[in-house]
Simulated scan of single mutants.
Amino acid sequence: MTRTRTLRIDRIACTGQGLCAELLPELIDLDEWGYPIAGDPAVPDRLRTHARRAVAACPRLALHTDDDPA
């Protein structure tokens, strides 16, 4: 069974510091107030390591990855 990793942003916990967009610009943009926007939540295999680093670096623990069965 193949698993797809998806990216989730907890908008309540996020304070808009923007570190996630700096570490994972391929998947995360910032809105006009500095809060993250993830267009497609699917994390490609080539970006999994970067996604894990961005999740670990989030100062508010507002960024998460989940494995979903494909």
Rank of each mutant, 00 (worst) to 15 (best):
I9T: 15
A54S: 12
C14E: 01
P25M: 08
A51I: 13
H64S: 09
Q17E: 14
G34C: 06
A42E: 12
T65L: 12
G34E: 10
A57Q: 03
D31Y: 11
T15A: 07
R8K: 15
G34D: 10
L7S: 11
T15C: 04
A70V: 10
I28M: 10
R5S: 14
E22T: 11
L63K: 04
D31I: 04
L19F: 10
A56V: 02
A38V: 15
C14Q: 00
Q17W: 12
L47W: 04
R53I: 10
L63V: 09
D31A: 09
D40Q: 06
A62C: 02
G16I: 01
D67C: 09
L47P: 05
R8N: 15
R8L: 15
L30S: 07
R52H: 14
R48A: 13
I12M: 12
G16T: 00
P59Y: 08
L24K: 11
Q17N: 14
L63P: 03
R52C: 05
A21S: 07
A38P: 05
R3E: 14
I37Y: 04
A57P: 00
G16E: 05
I9Q: 07
Y35Q: 02
A38I: 11
I12A: 14
D45Y: 04
G34L: 08
D67P: 10
R48E: 15
I28F: 11
P41E: 07
L63T: 03
R53V: 08
P59Q: 04
L23H: 15
L7H: 10
V43C: 11
A62L: 00
R53Y: 05
T65V: 14
A57V: 01
E26G: 07
L61E: 02
V43I: 15
A21H: 06
A42W: 01
T65D: 12
Y35F: 12
R46A: 13
T4A: 12
T15P: 00
H64I: 07
I9E: 02
R60W: 05
G18I: 02
I37L: 09
Q17G: 15
C14D: 00
L61C: 02
I12C: 05
R52Y: 06
R3N: 11
A70G: 06
C58K: 03
T65G: 09
L24M: 08
D67G: 13
Y35R: 01
W33L: 09
P59N: 05
R8V: 15
